[in-house]
Design a protein around this nucleic acid. Structure first.
Length: 479
RNA sequence: GGUCCGUUCGUCUAGUGGUUAGGACUCCAGGUUUUCAUCCUGGCAACAGGAGUUCGAUUCUCCUACGGACUACCA
């Protein structure tokens, strides 16, 4: 159902790269917008001048683009909208819903240490005009606080958590403008969300307390209150809120690690949401079609890398090879660059089933492009016996040289025949051959590898092996 | 400390006033396979605890415990 009035936003602070938690918040906003045909905006909350950096804005945008979370309209920067905030503060001041507080930080600290309460003692809540004017004449610095109601309750109906209510007496007269005049977060957010005509505010559960405060501002400014949905947190393995301490938490990191954006989105979506079916591999379109904010979990979820790996492997298995090729080239533009496309696609086909990430393709494909220059030591010790193996491979080489047609079937035929005739276990031939051809002990079908590599390359690698194997490290027992 | 929120296998979760509480990941055991992986079969493993409502609670209510978030002149 089309709904052009539905507008959501993602509002990151540019104080670091886009992390998993932020990406999940962005994703759920984006999914909600896409599902309902609404708009998705991005607002950069860069009013913390000390910590905000342009490079982080760029990196966040880059990660969003990589994820495919495209936004509508231009980016909105809070740092450029100060006038709007100051006007709102002025309105509040004039209507008597906000007031100047001349208490110094030290003064407030002493109150706090005295009664152990963090609550603002409301010492400037009801002062006479004269007192205030005297301070003003004195050029005393002041903050501006919201005059919040003290009786009754504040409440709102959360799309995910249901009804949340708190006693008004629990919330103190919080600051909306600093003593240097700069507006504070809770005020700014409300003004922006109203100005941007945001209909649904979807953000992390850590904002629930802010929501209550913001409702006061909405009411004081006579704004209509949007619908709120608070998302459960994403946790690390220790069940603490995901942070740098948990290692890889940046979207960029996962990109570098070789996960595709679809994979990350699939996993992130499942952290706190599911369609109620047993499906767990989704395309982005699947998720958009099935997404329902009402089915979002209340409970926070632990980020699990093993599930991510499995999802990644599943995606790779169904991804077309040319698409995988593009992903690989994004990570490593020179990969396979000296080989023609059909060859490279064949390499991908062979590796597909045993690759969990895009990086796996890169890591396990060297021998398709170069002669191996390292050989797995353990396998060398295990499968290449100085005299016998060399002899076997030598005679096999003669057979292979005679092959008129070079393909996996004919190669397999030759090797099997040779094994049978000489009463050798086929593994005794295949293992050393694989080592000579690829340098490693595992991988795709040896016959397929050989077919793809071509006769010349295989013969030359086997010749090398005959002349140099076994390569034994001098510093170990060699058994 | 206060306020708010949460609690189904180790993890992600489905689910219902009466179910053998289901699936997925991980792990384990088999099978397939030249290897690795895939794949197939099987297995381990959960309703935090206590009251109450009820013929019957994992499901509804309350309490406790535990966990988390918030509690700035940060955002």
């Amino acid at each position: 159902m089309a709904n052009s009035k539905l507008r959501v936003r993602f509002a990151p602070s540019p104080t670091g790269q886009l992390h998993l938690g932020g990406a999940r918040t962005a994703l759920f906003n984006w999914l909600f917008a896409k599902h309902h045909n609404g708009s998705f905006l991005v607002r950069i909350e860069d009013t913390d001048t000390l910590r905000s950096k342009d490079k982080f804005t760029e990196q966040i945008c880059q990660s969003m683009k990589w994820l495919g979370l495209d936004w509508d309209d231009e980016l909105i920067f809070q740092s450029k909208r100060t006038d709007l905030y100051l006007a709102a503060i002025q309105t509040l001041l004039e209507s008597g819903q906000a007031y100047r507080c001349f208490a110094s930080k030290d003064e407030l600290d002493s109150y706090r240490s005295k009664d152990g309460s963090f609550f603002y003692p409301e010492i400037w809540r009801n002062r006479s005009e004269n007192e205030i004017q005297a301070k003003l004449d004195n050029k005393s610095p002041f903050t501006i606080r919201l005059k919040t109601p003290k009786e009754g309750i504040v409440s709102f109906s959360d799309e995910i958590y249901g009804s949340i209510k708190v006693d008004n007496s629990e919330i103190d007269d919080f600051i909306i403008a600093r003593s240097d005049g700069r507006p504070v977060y809770n005020l700014v957010v409300v003004v922006d969300d109203h100005d941007m005509e945001i209909s649904h505010i979807i953000r992390g559960e850590d904002h629930v307390a802010n929501t209550l405060k913001q409702i006061y501002i909405y009411e004081a400014l006579n704004y209509s209150i949007p619908i709120f949905a608070h998302l459960p947190m994403i946790l690390g393995a220790d069940k603490k809120r995901l942070s740098k301490r948990h290692g890889a938490t940046g979207v960029q990191t996962y990109q570098d690690l070789g996960y595709t954006s679809d994979v990350l989105l699939n996993h992130l979506a499942l952290l706190g949401w599911n369609p109620g079916t047993e499906q767990d591999i989704f395309s982005v379109d699947d998720i958009i079609a099935q997404f329902d904010i009402k089915r979002v979990q209340k409970k926070s979820a632990v980020f699990n890398i093993q599930k991510l790996n499995w999802i990644s492997a599943q995606h790779i298995m169904i991804l077309p090879s040319n698409s995988i090729y593009n992903h690989i080239k994004q990570l490593n533009p020179s990969w396979g660059s000296n080989f023609d496309t059909p060859y490279v696609l064949n390499v991908i086909n062979l590796l597909k089933q045993r690759s969990k990430t895009i990086v796996d393709f890169i890591d396990s494909s060297h021998y398709f492009f170069n002669n191996p220059n390292q050989f797995d030591k353990k396998t060398m010790r295990k499968c290449w016996k100085p005299d016998t193996t060399t002899q076997i491979i030598e005679s096999l080489l003669i057979e292979l040289n005679r092959l008129s047609e070079w393909n996996s079937t004919s190669i397999e035929g030759i090797i099997k025949k040779y094994a049978e005739e000489n009463k050798i276990l086929i593994g005794k031939i295949i293992q050393p051959t694989r080592l000579a051809i690829s340098g490693v002990s595992g991988g795709p079908s040896l016959f397929s590898i050989m077919e793809l590599l071509g006769m010349k390359v295989c013969i030359s690698r086997l010749n090398y092996a005959i002349n140099h194997f076994p390569i034994i490290e001098s510093d170990n027992n060699g058994s």
